[in-house]
Design a binder for these strands. Structure first.
Length: 317
DNA sequence: AACCGAGTCAACCGCTTCCAC
DNA sequence: AGTGGAAGCGGTTGACTCGGT
C-alpha cells in the first residue's frame, strides 16, 4: 500500500498561480509564518496542495529573490559549484541566497549546459572541469568513504575553481557586495524586467498585480480589498520581527530594495519558520572567501573543511 | 497573418531525508 | 531502534513566448 497523497487530489487546484492566490498566501505567511505547510492551504483559504504553496513561496514569493539576469559572476559560481557539488541545486542555491534552487536548476539546464558543451567542443575549457567527470552520477557507485575521499581530493581543484569564480569581480571582495543593490545596476545593461536586478517578493507581486489591481474603484474584483495587501505589508514591517522584507508602495520599490534585500538576508539566515530554505548548514561566504583567498588561514581552512564536509555532505548519506 | 520549432521557466511528481514520537 | 508524517529536493513536464519562415 502506497503512501497517501500529500493532500486531497480532489478539489486541489493545479497550474499557474493567480495574483489572488499569491496575495492570500503572502498575507497568510506574513501574518502567521508558514509553520506547518500542511495547514497553510486550508488556513489561508487556498485550494492548493501544501507542496504547491511551499514551492510557490520559496520559488517566487519569498522576500529577497532575485530573478533572471544571472551575472557572469553568478554564472561562474554556479558552474564551479556544480562541478564541486553535482546537481545538488539546493546546496548550490545556498551560496547564492537570492537565487532559488529551481531558478539555478533551470538556468543550468537551459543555458549553462549548452554553454559548457560549446566550450567543450571548441576546446576552450577555461579550467572548468566537467561534472560528468567526477560527480554524483559516478559517485553513486562509490561507498561513502570513497566518495568522501574523492571529494577531499577534488577539494583543491574546486578551491582553485571557486577562487577563479569569486575573483571575477574583484576587488568587490564579497559576493554580497557584487550582488548588493548598489546605486546602479551596473552588471547587466539590459537588466530586464525591472530597473534593478533585485526583485523582492513584493516587487514580484506588484508586477503580477500590475494589471489586476489597476482600477481601485472596482473593489468587487478584489477579494481582499485593494488596501488589505499593502496594509498587511505595512503592518508586518513594523510588527513582525522575522518577516517584512517588503517595501510599502506598489510602484516605488527601488529605493527600498536595499533594505528589503538586507532584511531578507537576515531572514534567510536567521529563521526557518517562514519556509525559506535553511542556510544554517552552509558556510558563510565570507568564510568561504577567506578560505579561498587566504591560504595561510589554517584555522579558517579547518573550520570550512569541517563545516563543508560534515554539513554539506550530511544530506548525502 | 499563420505556422512551426526552439527556448524558457513555473509548477508538478515522486523519491529521499528529517524529525517527532 | 522503528515508524509515520512532513518537509525538502531534483528530475521532468507542459504552457507560454519569441524568432524565423
Amino acid at each position: 500500500m502506497g503512501r497517501p497523497p500529500c493532500c486531497d487530489k480532489i478539489g486541489t487546484k493545479k497550474g499557474p498561480w493567480t495574483p489572488e492566490e499569491d496575495i492570500m498566501l503572502v498575507s497568510y505567511i506574513q501574518e502567521h509564518g508558514s509553520g506547518n505547510w500542511r495547514s497553510v492551504p486550508a488556513n489561508a483559504g487556498l485550494m492548493r496542495c501544501s507542496k504547491s504553496c511551499r514551492l510557490r513561496w520559496i520559488n517566487y514569493l519569498r522576500p529577497g529573490i532575485k530573478r533572471g539576469n544571472f551575472t557572469e559572476h553568478e554564472e561562474k559560481m554556479i558552474i564551479h559549484l556544480q562541478a564541486l557539488l553535482g546537481n545538488r541545486w539546493a546546496a548550490i542555491a545556498s551560496y547564492l541566497p537570492q537565487r532559488t534552487d529551481n531558478d539555478i536548476k533551470n538556468y543550468w539546464n537551459t543555458h549553462l549546459k549548452k554553454k559548457l558543451k560549446q566550450n567543450d567542443q571548441s576546446g576552450s575549457d577555461e579550467g572548468v572541469h566537467h561534472p560528468e567527470g567526477h560527480s554524483c552520477s559516478s559517485s553513486s557507485s562509490h561507498s561513502k568513504g570513497q566518495w568522501e575521499r574523492r571529494l577531499q581530493t577534488d577539494i583543491k581543484m574546486a578551491k582553485q575553481a571557486l577562487c577563479e569564480a569569486l575573483s571575477l569581480h574583484k576587488p568587490a571582495t564579497h559576493v554580497e557586495s557584487d550582488t548588493k543593490p548598489s546605486s546602479s545596476s551596473h552588471h547587466h545593461p539590459n537588466a530586464s524586467s525591472s530597473s534593478s536586478p533585485y526583485a523582492s517578493s513584493y516587487e514580484n507581486i506588484s508586477r503580477l498585480l500590475e494589471n489586476w489591481m489597476k482600477p481601485p474603484n472596482s473593489t468587487e474584483t478584489n477579494p481582499l480589498g485593494y488596501h488589505s495587501f499593502s496594509n498587511v505589508i505595512n503592518n508586518t514591517r513594523g510588527s513582525s520581527s522575522s518577516e517584512g522584507a517588503y517595501s510599502t508602495t506598489t510602484t516605488t520599490t527601488t529605493c527600498t530594495q536595499d533594505y528589503a534585500f538586507d532584511e531578507s538576508f537576515l531572514i534567510l539566515n536567521s529563521s526557518k519558520h517562514n519556509g525559506s530554505p535553511p542556510l544554517e548548514t552552509h558556510v558563510p561566504l565570507t568564510l568561504l572567501e577567506n578560505w579561498l583567498f587566504d591560504d595561510g588561514a589554517v584555522q579558517c581552512d579547518e573550520d570550512l573543511m569541517n563545516i563543508s564536509l560534515e554539513k554539506s555532505t550530511a544530506g548525502l548519506f
